[in-house]
Nucleic acid binder design. Structure first.
Lengths: 188, 188
DNA sequence: TTAAATTTCCAGAAAATTCTGGAAATTGAA
DNA sequence: TTCAATTTCCAGAATTTTCTGGAAATTTAA
C-alpha cells in the first residue's frame, strides 16, 4: 500500500505536528493515514505503508484508542483488527476537546480546589491563594460553558459560530428580555 | 527565598503538567512561581528557589517570553532583569489561546490550503482531499469564530459564557428577527 | 483441543530532550 | 574607557522518550 505524494505530505505533516499536540510522530502519522484513507486499515497495512515495526504500530493504535480517536471494526472474513476514525469531523472535534480537557485541565482544577480549601499560613500564602482563586474561577467558567455547549446540537453550534461577533447584539437583546444567567453567583 | 508547602504544591503540579501543555518541567515550574509570587522575580530568585542552574533558568525564561506569558520589568536601582506574568487572568487566557492557535493550528491550516489547491491524481487523492476539505472547513469556522470573539470585551464574553446553553433560546429569537450570519456561504 | 494467526508485552538499543558548568559576549555605572 | 555584573551561548552529561525484534499470551477456526 503506497501513498500518493498528496497523502504523504498530509501524513508527514501530522507526524511533525504530533509533538505539539501531545502525541509522538508515529501516533500522528498513523492517525493521519487512517483519517485520509476513507476505509478501515489493519496494523499490517499501517506498518507497511509507514514503515514502522509491528509493535510500534500496536502501541500507536492503543494510544489513539485511549484518545478515543479511532475505533475498532472488523471486516467480514478477516480476523485481524481494523481501525478507523469517527466519520464525522464534528465528532472528532468533540472527542478532542473532551480528552484535552480531561488530560490538560481537570488535574489542575482538582489541585486548585484542594489548595483553596487550606488555611493560608502567611501573607505569601494569601497572595498565592488569591491568584489560584482567579485561575480557578476562569477555568470553572470556561469548562462550565463548554459543558453547556456540548449539550447543543452541532447545527446550533454552527449557527452560533457563524453569528460571530454579532452575538453581542443578540446578548443585548437577551438582557432586555431578562434571560437568566447560567450561574448568577458565578465568576465576575 | 523558600516556598511554603502550599506554593510548593502549586509549583510542582505545574512542573508535572508542563509536558502535557507543551513545555518542559523547568518552564512549567518557573511560570507557576512567577504566577503565584505576586511580584516580579529575577533569574537568581528563580534559580535559588527552584534549584535550577542559572542557564536553565535563562532558557526557561526565554521560552516563556516566546509564549508571551511573562514580560520583562526593571526594579529601580537594580540592573538585573525581573519578570512577571500579565496581571489579569483574562489576558493570560487570551495570549494562551493565540499562541496555541499559532503553534498548533496555523501550520496545519496552511498545509491544508496548499493541498486543496492541487489537482487530485487518483481516486485515493479525491477521497483524501474530501477529508482534508472537511477538516479545513471545521478549522476555518472555529478560528473565524475565535477571531470574532476576541473582538468582544471580556465582560461580553463572560456574559456569553454565563448564558450557557440558554444561548439556544436566544439564537432562535435572533433567527426570527433575521440577524444575518457572519458568513452565509460558510461551512455546513 | 489443536494449531495457526494475531496481538500484547518486554528488555535493550537508538534517538531526542533536558540540564549543567563554564566560557564568551553584553551591559551599564563610574 | 574600564571593569564588574549580568546574560547568552555552547559542548558534553544525564535523563527521558521512542522504537525494535522477539517472546509470550490470546484468539478463533477447524
Amino acid at each position: 500500500m503506497n501513498l500518493t505524494p498528496l497523502a504523504e505530505r498530509f501524513v508527514l505533516h501530522f507526524g511533525e505536528m504530533g509533538s505539539r499536540w501531545g502525541v509522538n510522530r508515529t501516533v500522528g502519522q498513523i492517525y493521519a493515514l487512517l483519517y485520509i484513507s476513507g476505509r478501515p486499515l489493519c496494523a499490517d497495512d499501517i506498518g507497511e505503508t509507514l514503515a514502522f515495526s509491528r509493535s510500534n504500530v500496536g502501541i500507536g493504535i492503543k494510544e489513539l484508542q485511549a484518545w478515543r480517536l479511532v475505533k475498532l471494526v472488523h471486516l467480514p472474513g478477516d480476523r485481524r483488527d481494523y481501525f478507523e476514525p469517527p466519520k464525522d469531523v464534528w465528532d472528532i472535534f468533540r472527542v478532542l476537546m473532551e480528552e484535552r480537557r480531561r488530560r490538560e485541565i481537570e488535574p489542575t482544577l482538582s489541585m486548585l480546589r484542594e489548595a483553596l480549601l487550606e488555611k493560608p499560613e502567611s501573607e505569601a500564602d494569601r497572595i498565592a491563594q488569591g491568584r489560584m482563586r482567579e485561575m480557578h474561577e476562569l477555568i470553572e467558567l470556561t469548562t462550565g460553558w463548554l459543558d453547556d455547549v456540548q449539550r447543543l446540537s452541532p447545527e446550533t453550534v454552527i449557527k452560533l459560530m457563524q453569528l460571530g461577533a454579532k452575538v453581542q447584539k443578540v446578548l443585548e437583546l437577551a438582557d432586555k428580555l431578562k434571560f437568566g444567567s447560567r450561574d448568577s453567583e458565578g465568576a465576575a
